[in-house]
Write a protein that binds this DNA or RNA. Sequence first.
DNA 1: AGAGCGATTGCCT
DNA 2: GGCAATCGCTCTG
Length: 217
Amino acid sequence: MDVYRPSTTHLRVLPRRFYQASVLSVARDLLGTYLVRTVATRDRQEPGSGIEYRLVARIVETEAYHESEPASHSYRGIRPRTEVMFGDPGHAYVYFIYGMHYCFNVVCEASGIGSAVLIRAVEPMHGEAVMRSRRPAARRPQELTNGPAKLAQAFGITRDRDNGKDLVSSDIRICAYRDEPAHSVNRTGRIGITKARDLDWRFTIAGNPYVSKKRTR
DNA sequence: AGAGCGATTGCCT
DNA sequence: GGCAATCGCTCTG
């Protein structure tokens, strides 16, 4: 049996309207879509000749955040850091946490409403070699991308470089795959937060080995 | 101005 | 399971 590896040519970029919906439905619907980073390099032998490669991974775990609940960065209103959460849907919100990690989010709902979906885990499909080189601490394949800061590292996502980027047209995009198989969704409480613990706003693809480990606490 | 802490990870026992 | 790393953001005074 062949390894399941979607062809890059059969990935189509999700349109703006996909993101202009309730944060909970977007968080659920992002499962089974593909995070794609296109990297342009320069050929050493022939300067000027364009070479590019792609990092592709399937989204398997998400969490919703909304201005109406205190666990969200947007709860305190518009600030320099949270400005993009209140901006147009379909853009990247990247924040810096614990003095050393970045996390990648997708802005959704209408402009003016502060909401975003945190991408917590993805399953690599293309470009594993590059991801491994960026994640030397990873012992097992799952450790490449089974956590929000891990996948940001694997994809080279940082605040300076990527915060505010348009996911419809920039070098970071999210795509649907034509022949993506159906999956079942689990819904649980969010990980690592202390506020609004009662909300089941975390979505995972049931049984996927790249779903992040749940830590006690 | 300063304290306290966070949507995490990796190393140690 | 415990805990250090490391700094931007928020709140308090």
